[in-house]
C-alpha cells in the first residue's frame, strides 16, 4: 500500500501525547506521540510504501518484536487514515 501525508500539519509534542492540527480539515487530534516518528518518515509530495515504513522501524528486531511493531504500526496507520492525516495513494 502507498501512502501520502497531508500537507502543512502542525504539532505540539508532550511527554506522552502529541497534539496534531490539520489545516486541511480544521481538526485537532490528541494522539500517542509515537505518531510523530511515523509521520516524520512520510512525505507530503511523494508516496510512501507501508512495507518500507514497517521495515524502517523493525530493523534489527527479533521476529517476535517485528510482529508486534508491525501490528502497532498498522493500527496507527489505520487510525491516521481514518483521521485523514494520511491518504492512500492508488495507482
Amino acid at each position: 500500500m502507498l501512502l501520502i501525508k497531508s500537507s502543512n500539519l502542525l504539532h505540539e509534542y508532550f511527554s506522552e501525547q502529541v497534539i496534531v492540527f490539520d489545516p486541511n480539515t480544521g481538526q485537532t487530534h490528541c494522539l500517542d506521540n509515537n505518531v510523530i516518528e511515523i509521520l516524520g518518515q512520510m512525505s507530503t509530495n511523494k508516496s510512501n510504501s507501508l512495507a518500507q515504513l514497517k521495515q524502517f522501524f523493525t530493523q534489527e528486531c527479533s521476529n517476535d518484536e517485528k510482529t508486534r511493531i508491525n501490528d502497532y504500526i498498522q493500527d496507527m496507520i489505520n487510525n491516521l487514515l481514518q483521521l485523514k492525516l494520511i491518504r492512500v495513494h492508488s495507482l
Partner: peptide
C-alpha cells in the same frame, strides 16, 4: 493535569478556536 489533556480542554472551552 497533564498538558496534552489541558490543551484539548482549552480547545473545547474556546469560542473561536476553530
Amino acid at each position: 493535569t497533564d498538558k496534552a489533556t489541558a490543551f484539548m480542554s482549552v480547545i473545547e472551552n474556546s469560542f473561536n478556536y476553530a
